[in-house]
C-alpha cells in the first residue's frame, strides 16, 4: 500500500499581531511547528504501515523552512519526504494549493490513500483535503475519527453534528482525520537520527509540470483584501473585586439573583 500524507508547517502561536505601520502580519521571531492535526494524519499513516505494511510519503508545500516539518514526519515513521517549494507557489489559496498537491500526488503516482489533517490551525479552512480529492477525481472521507483498510476499501467512523457514521470508500481515496483518531507518538532520538538518511526530494513548479497561472497568487481566485483588528465592543462589564472569598460571594449573589442557585 502506498500512502501519501500531506502536512503543513504553521506558526507556533495564536498571538499574531499586525504591524501598525504596514498592516501586515508580524512574523518575525515566531517559531514554526508541524500542524497538530497533521501529526494525527502522520500517526494514522504510520499505524496503517505497521499493521499492513505500506510506504508512507510525506508531502508539504511551503518555503524551504518547511523541510523541518517533513524531517519530523520522517522521524515519526514516514519513509520519504517531498517538499514542494517554488516562489511561484507562494500566496496560494486552497484552490491553488490543492492543484499543486494534486500534481505532486500524480507525480509520486500509484497512491492508494491520501491522508490529511482535518484542518491547519493557521488557516482553519479544512478545504485542501477535499479539494485535492476533487482534482484527482477520487472519493473522500472527511472528519474521520477512525481508519482501517480492508479489501481495497478504506473504512472510517465519522462524527457529525447529530450522528455518527461508518463509511467506506474504494481506494484510491482521500481521508481527512480528526484529532480523536489517535495520539501522535513522540519521535525517538534514534529515529530522528535515522530520519536524516531517508530520501528527501524538493520539487519546484517545473518538476511538477505545473501551469504557473494555476499556482500561487495567479492561481488563487480568493485573496485577503483587508486585515482588521477585531472591533472593540464596549460591554458594560461589572467587575467583582476583593479577596477570592469576596469575589466568590459576589458571584454567588449574582447567581442567586439570576435564580441559578
Amino acid at each position: 500500500m502506498k500512502i501519501l500524507v500531506f502536512i503543513k508547517q504553521v506558526p507556533d502561536t495564536d498571538d499574531v499581531k499586525l504591524d501598525p505601520k504596514t498592516g501586515n502580519i508580524m512574523r518575525e521571531g515566531v517559531a514554526s511547528k508541524l500542524n497538530p492535526l497533521d501529526a494525527n494524519a502522520v500517526e494514522a499513516a504510520v499505524q496503517l504501515k505497521e499493521k499492513y505494511g505500506a510506504t508512507v510519503h510525506a508531502v508539504s508545500m511551503g518555503p524551504p523552512q518547511a523541510e523541518d516539518a517533513l524531517k519530523k514526519a520522517l522521524a515519526l515513521g514516514c519513509d520519504e519526504a517531498y517538499l514542494l517549494s517554488d516562489r511561484a507557489f507562494g500566496g496560494a489559496d486552497t484552490l491553488a494549493t490543492a492543484y499543486t498537491l494534486s500534481l505532486a500526488a500524480r507525480k509520486i503516482g500509484d497512491y492508494d490513500l491520501l491522508l490529511f489533517g482535518r484542518h491547519a490551525i493557521d488557516g482553519d479552512t479544512a478545504q485542501t483535503g477535499p479539494a485535492t480529492a476533487a482534482f484527482l477525481g477520487i472519493p473522500q472521507i472527511t472528519l474521520a475519527s477512525s481508519i482501517d483498510v480492508q479489501d481495497g476499501y478504506v473504512i472510517c467512523d465519522r462524527v457529525l453534528e447529530a450522528s455518527s457514521q461508518k463509511v467506506r470508500a474504494r481506494l484510491p481515496a482521500a481521508v481527512a482525520v480528526t484529532q480523536e483518531i489517535n495520539t501522535p507518538r513522540y519521535p525517538k532520538p534514534i529515529n530522528i537520527m535515522k530520519a536524516l538518511k531517508k530520501p528527501r526530494y524538493v520539487w519546484n513548479a517545473e518538476d511538477l509540470g505545473a501551469d504557473t497561472s494555476r499556482t500561487g497568487i495567479p492561481g488563487s481566485p480568493s485573496s485577503t483584501k483587508e486585515l482588521l483588528e477585531p472591533p472593540k465592543r464596549n460591554a458594560d462589564t461589572k467587575y467583582f473585586s476583593g479577596s477570592a472569598e469576596e469575589i466568590a460571594a459576589q458571584i454567588a449573589d449574582m447567581l442567586h439573583d439570576e435564580h441559578l442557585i
Binding site: 495564536d14 499574531v16 485573496s223 483588528e229
Partner: peptide, 18 residues
C-alpha cells in the same frame, strides 16, 4: 469575514474575478 491567524485578527476575503 473570517478570523485569521488563530483569531487575533479578522480578514476580509474577496473573490475579485472568478
Amino acid at each position: 469575514t473570517t478570523p485569521a491567524y488563530g483569531g487575533s485578527i479578522l480578514a476580509h476575503i474577496v473573490i475579485l474575478e472568478a
